[in-house]
Design a protein around this nucleic acid. Structure first.
Lengths: 140, 140
DNA sequence: TATTGTTATACTCTATAACTATA
DNA sequence: TATAGTTATAGAGTATAACAATA
């Protein structure tokens, strides 16, 4: 049915992601973070301040991967770690005021990068692309 | 505007690709190839047999990456390399009969994996997803 | 001089296993 | 015993630099 490499979903997802990463890198450079780090900041701001493990689960990465991500963000002064009151095995991770500011500004910059990526689409098409992707991803 | 990590395009592309890779791995296991190798076979069958560099360009990878990919496919007896008649710096890469058979069968298996990935979508939605992704990727 | 394929090397992202401190 | 965070390590996947053969 589908007979060219460039129309396979695997190829399309991969190259779309690479292009998004490039645009994000350019847009986020002024804030000294990358797209993955912005995703971490977003996870930390989503609901209650999560433990490292909860943050890792929400992002779909291993807890050992989260350690290095948070090390970098902590060094930059964007997040803090402190033992949870009731269970001192856990670290509660929170955004610093600077982290909240960077999150706000960087999200706006990344929104612009997303608009660049979808500049060949109408607004409605861009919305539907996001909706269709969410339907695929949330199922797993 | 968009305020959760799981609704960012970067996150969605990445996780969609990971899920596609998982489904492809399961579907292609009987043919002893992975999704990347299937993409190479597809590129080789697209038009005229290309040189390694042309194949790499079409797939969007470096020529040094293509060397290892073709080494594996050649070991499995799916492709052959021979110097091009007019320019012996180049290797013409072609599918063997076995490579053509594997391409045919593996493509059918991967088509099924793609249908699994998009099982939450209508056929029309799945078609549009592919169309929208192509619009984004082909632009780069 | 420039290009193609190759090799050596290094870098990024990621996960597994083992350690520690806490529970 | 089990869990959260950490560290060491290893495996993909990838690109850059340097080399040989050819143009």
């Amino acid at each position: 049915m589908v007979s060219s490499a460039s129309s396979r979903l695997g190829y399309l997802f991969k190259h779309a992601q690479q292009r998004m990463a490039q645009l994000n890198a350019a847009a986020l450079a002024p804030y000294d973070i990358n797209g993955r780090e912005l995703a971490v900041l977003l996870v930390l701001s989503d609901h209650e301040p999560p433990s490292q493990q909860q943050a890792a689960d929400r992002l779909g990465v291993d807890r050992t991967t989260m350690v290095a991500l948070l090390d970098a963000l902590e060094t930059k002064g964007l997040v803090t770690r402190r033992p949870q009151a009731g269970d001192r095995r856990r670290n509660v991770v929170e955004l610093t005021p600077k982290g909240q500011q960077v999150l706000h500004d960087a999200t706006a910059a990344s929104d612009q990068a997303e608009r660049e990526l979808t500049s060949a689409l109408t607004k409605q098409e861009a919305r539907q692309l996001r909706t269709l992707l969410q339907a695929i991803v949330e199922e797993s």
